[in-house]
Design a protein around this nucleic acid. Structure first.
Lengths: 344, 344
DNA sequence: ATGTGTCGTCGAAGCGCTTCGATGATCTCG
DNA sequence: CGAGATCATCGAAGCGCTTCGACGACACAT
C-alpha cells in the first residue's frame, strides 16, 4: 500500500512534474528526456520506452514557457479574426475553426486576436515571442496590416490576397476565376442578361480583396461573353428592395449571381414573391452555403481547405522563412437545380 | 549621423531587445526595470520615467515565455468555444469577442480551444502552464467538462450553469426568470393561449443549461398564470412547418415566445404568410437579435456583459482561487411593437 | 592491437525574466 | 543626535527547459 498523494519520485513542492522528475523516474538525465520528446537525437528503443512510460506514469507536461524560452519556439500561432458588421460571421467562424484544427494537427495552439487591436496586436504578439507565426483573414486590397507584417520578421500567411504580394505568403480561392465561372455557366446556358448581387457596399468601399476580385472576374467575363451584366451591392435588409427593383427595371433578366451568404435567402424569397423562382430565373450562388439549403448551382467556398493550407504554409515558413508564395485554389462550379436555359 | 541598424546599446545578437539592454540604456539594474514594469516595489519617479523612456526608445517587449517561467503567470486565458451544428454562430461569436476584449483590458491574451478537443485540451493547456485560467461556454446541465475543471487546480469560469455548481464560478443570464418574464408579459396583456418556440431538439437532448432553464421558467410561469401553454423545439428548416401546424391546430393561439435566433425570421415570415402578423399575434423574442431587426418585444441576451463578467470573475479567482460564486444576471424585458392585448 | 566512426547518453550552460534578501541613503522622532 | 523605520535600488538565484560539446562503448576496417 502506498501513499496516493506522493511517492518517492515526487518533488515535494507543488503538483507539477518537471523534466527532472521524469528523468529520475526513468533513470536517465533530463537531456535524454528532452531528446526523447523532440526526437532531435537518436535514443535507443529501450530508453525511449522507459522514458515514455515514466512520462505518462507521472503525467508529465512540459512547461510551455520554459520550453519557449529555451527553444525560441512557442508552438502557438496567432489568428486575426475579422470583426465587422459586414462580414458574415458563420463564414469567418468556419475559417477560424479550420485554422485551429489544422494548427492542432501541427502541434500548435491558436491565440485569438481581434482586428480591433490593429497593428498594435501584431507587434505585441510578435515582439513578446508569444507566437511563431500569424494567420490573417479578411485581407483588403491595400491592407494596412501588410506593411506591418513585412516589418515583423515573424512568418505570416494571409487568407486573402492584397494588391502587392511581394514578400508575402497568401492563400485564397481564385475569386476572379470564380466570378468568371459563374458568368460562363450562365452564358453557356444561353443567358444574355444577368445581374451580380454582391456584398454590402461597405465591403467594396474598404476594398476587401475577395469581393473586389470576384467583381472584376465577373465584369471581365461578362464583357468577353457579350452579355448584359450589372452588379449590385446588397445587404440582408436591402435584399427585398433590390429584388423589386431588378424585377421592375430588368424585364429581360434571366440570370442571377449571388455572392452574399446573408442576403441569399431573403433575396430568393423576394424574387419568389414576384413569381420568379429558380430555375425559371437562373441563380448561381457563390460562397459558403448553409447545410440544408436548397440545391442551388454554386461555387463553394472551401473554407476548411483554405484554413488548412494557410496553416501548412505557415509551418513551412516557420521552418524556412525564405520562401514565399501565393496559392490560388481553383474554383469548382457545382451544378444544382437552380440554373437552366432561359425560357422564352 | 549614426548607424541606423545598430547603436551602442544594441546587444549585437538578433533583433530582440532584452531587459538588460533596457537596464543599460537607462543606467539601472534589470531588476529595477522589472519593478517599473510590474509596480511591485516602489520606484522613484525620475527612475521610472527614465526606464519607461528607454523602453520605448528601444522598443522593448518582455519575452512572454521568460516571464511566464519566472513569474508562474502566462497572462493568457483559454476560451473553449462551442462548435456544434445547433449553436447559433453569431451568438457564440459575440461571447468570444467580448471575452477577448475583456481579457485584453486585463492585460491577458486568449487562447482558442475548440470543444472538439474535449477534456484533453483542458489538461493540455492547464498542465503546460499555458494559461492562467479557463472560460467555458455552452455549458450543459450535466457537463462532462465540469469534473475535469474541478480536478484541474486552475481557475475557471463557466458562462452557463450546470446542475451541480459546487466549487465552480458561473455567470449567466437568469434564463428561468427570462422565460417566466416572457410569460408574465403576455399573461398581463391578457393572453391565455401561448406557445414557446425553442431551440433545436438536439439542444434539449444534450441538456444545454440555458435552454433547459428557460423552458423550466416558461412552464412554471405558465402554470402559475393559468394560461394554456405548449413548447416546441424548432430549427430554421422546420420553422415553416411549425408555423403551419400552430396556425392549424391552435386557433386560439395569441402569443408566441421565440427562443431561437436562427428560426425567428423564417418563423415570422411563415406566420405572416398565414395572415398573422405582430401585433395581431403577440411575439416575444428571447435572445440575441440582429441589428436592423424589427422592433420586437424581447429579452436581450447581454452577451458582452456576460463575457466581461466572466473574465473579471476569472481574474478574481486567479488572484484568489478560494472564492467561488454563481452570478445570474437579471433579465430585462424590452417592450416593442410586437405585443399587444389579444384581439377579439 | 590501433585507429576511425557511429551511437547513445550525460553534464553544464544559458534562454530572459522575476523575486528575494541585502544595502545604502534618507527620514522620523524621542 | 543616534536608533529605527522607510525608501530606492542592486545582485544573485532560480524558474524548467533545450542544446552543445564531450565522452564512453562498441563496431568495423585496417
Amino acid at each position: 500500500m502506498r501513499n496516493i498523494s506522493s511517492n518517492r519520485f515526487d518533488n515535494g513542492r507543488d503538483g507539477t512534474v518537471r523534466i527532472s522528475d521524469v528523468a529520475r523516474h526513468a533513470g536517465v538525465s533530463p537531456s535524454t528526456v528532452s531528446y526523447v520528446l523532440s526526437g532531435k537525437r537518436s535514443i535507443s528503443e529501450t530508453t525511449r520506452r522507459r522514458v515514455l512510460d515514466s512520462i505518462d506514469a507521472l503525467g508529465y507536461r512540459p512547461h510551455a514557457g520554459a520550453r519557449s524560452l529555451a527553444s525560441r519556439r512557442s508552438n502557438v500561432l496567432a489568428l486575426v479574426v475579422p470583426l465587422r458588421e459586414d462580414v458574415h460571421v458563420p463564414v469567418a467562424m468556419r475559417f477560424a475553426v479550420s485554422v485551429v484544427t489544422a494548427a492542432r494537427a501541427h502541434d500548435h495552439d491558436v491565440l485569438l486576436l481581434t482586428q480591433g487591436e490593429g497593428p498594435a496586436g501584431l507587434h505585441r504578439v510578435a515582439g513578446s515571442a508569444m507566437v511563431d507565426g500569424i494567420v490573417v483573414m479578411d485581407v483588403e486590397t491595400d491592407d494596412a496590416r501588410v506593411p506591418v507584417l513585412r516589418s515583423l520578421d515573424l512568418p505570416s500567411v494571409l487568407i486573402g490576397v492584397p494588391a502587392d504580394t511581394e514578400g508575402l505568403t497568401c492563400v485564397d480561392l481564385d475569386f476572379a476565376a470564380a466570378g468568371a465561372a459563374c458568368v460562363h455557366h450562365l452564358a453557356d446556358l444561353g443567358h444574355r442578361d444577368i445581374a451580380f448581387v454582391g456584398q454590402p457596399a461597405s465591403v467594396y468601399e474598404r476594398r476587401t480583396g475577395f469581393a473586389e476580385r470576384t467583381l472584376t472576374g465577373f465584369e471581365a467575363a461578362a464583357l468577353e461573353c457579350g452579355v448584359r451584366a450589372t452588379s449590385h451591392p446588397c445587404d440582408p435588409a436591402g435584399a427585398r428592395d433590390l429584388a423589386s427593383a431588378l424585377v421592375r427595371d430588368r424585364p429581360g433578366l434571366s440570370g442571377l449571381i449571388v455572392h452574399n451568404e446573408a442576403s441569399l435567402a431573403p433575396l430568393l424569397d423576394a424574387f419568389a414573391d414576384h413569381g420568379r423562382v429558380p430555375p425559371e430565373i437562373s441563380v448561381v450562388a457563390l460562397g459558403s452555403l448553409p447545410q440544408g439549403a436548397p440545391d442551388l448551382t454554386r461555387v463553394e467556398l472551401p473554407a476548411e481547405e483554405l484554413g488548412a493550407r494557410a496553416v501548412s504554409l505557415l509551418m513551412d515558413r516557420i521552418d524556412d522563412p525564405g520562401r514565399t508564395e501565393v496559392t490560388l485554389l481553383e474554383p469548382r462550379i457545382v451544378p444544382g437545380r437552380s440554373t437552366a436555359p432561359p425560357t422564352g
